[in-house]
Structures are given as C-alpha cells and as structure tokens.
C-alpha cells in the first residue's frame, strides 16, 4: 500500500522534499513506515530515539495524532497521509 508523507519545517531539509510516497506492505503498522523513512542515519536520528519515536516529533495521520491511534503500533491504510512536524508551541 502507499502512504503519502508530508514534511514540514526542518524535516523538509532532512528529507530533501516536501512530500513523498512510501510503499509499505499491506496491513503494515506505523513502525514499518517509520523504518522505511529512516533510510539514512540523519533521518533515523530525526525520527527515532532508540526504538521509540523521537519526543520532538508531532506525527499526524489524516489530521489526528498518530499517538491517539497507537503510535508505532497504529494500523495504517492505503492512501493515508502522514504529516511530520516538529513539536511546536504557541498561541
């Protein structure tokens, strides 16, 4: 299946693009997508701390927090859009 990833802020430089489609096995969980994205040391460092998601990240699937769908164990569907932001604050 294909999951579109949209990069924001500094992640655009880390990943060298604004968005990219990743092909992962049908029924795969978010962990498989993150592993596919972490294809270089710098990208891995931006996404993961050890085997967990980096605490600086805000990941949104279809406008909802990935964490609310189970984080790395979230089930993804074909056509999902993942947005990658640094943790922001303000208002």
């Amino acid at each position: 299946m294909v999951v579109k990833v949209k990069f924001f802020s500094a992640f655009r430089e880390v990943f060298g693009t604004r968005e990219r489609d990743y092909v992962i096995p049908d029924g795969a969980r978010a962990r498989a997508l993150i592993e596919a994205m972490a294809d270089q040391p710098e990208r891995r460092a931006a996404l993961l701390r050890g085997s967990n998601l980096h605490p600086h990240l805000v990941l949104l699937v279809g406008g909802e927090a990935l964490s609310s769908r189970g984080g790395l164990e979230a089930e993804l569907r074909d056509g999902d859009v993942l947005a990658v932001f640094p943790m922001l604050g303000g208002g």
Binding site: V58, L60, G63, F85, L88, G89, G90
Partner: peptide, 16 residues
C-alpha cells in the same frame, strides 16, 4: 523551536 519559528510556526500544523 519557539526561538527559531516563533508562535506562527503553528500555522501549518493547526491547518493540518
């Protein structure tokens, strides 16, 4: 991040 982006760093995230 607040120093780098300011609070308007939120604009795109709040839209998503």
């Amino acid at each position: 991040l607040l120093r780098e982006m300011g609070t308007a760093g939120l604009v795109e995230l709040i839209n998503v």
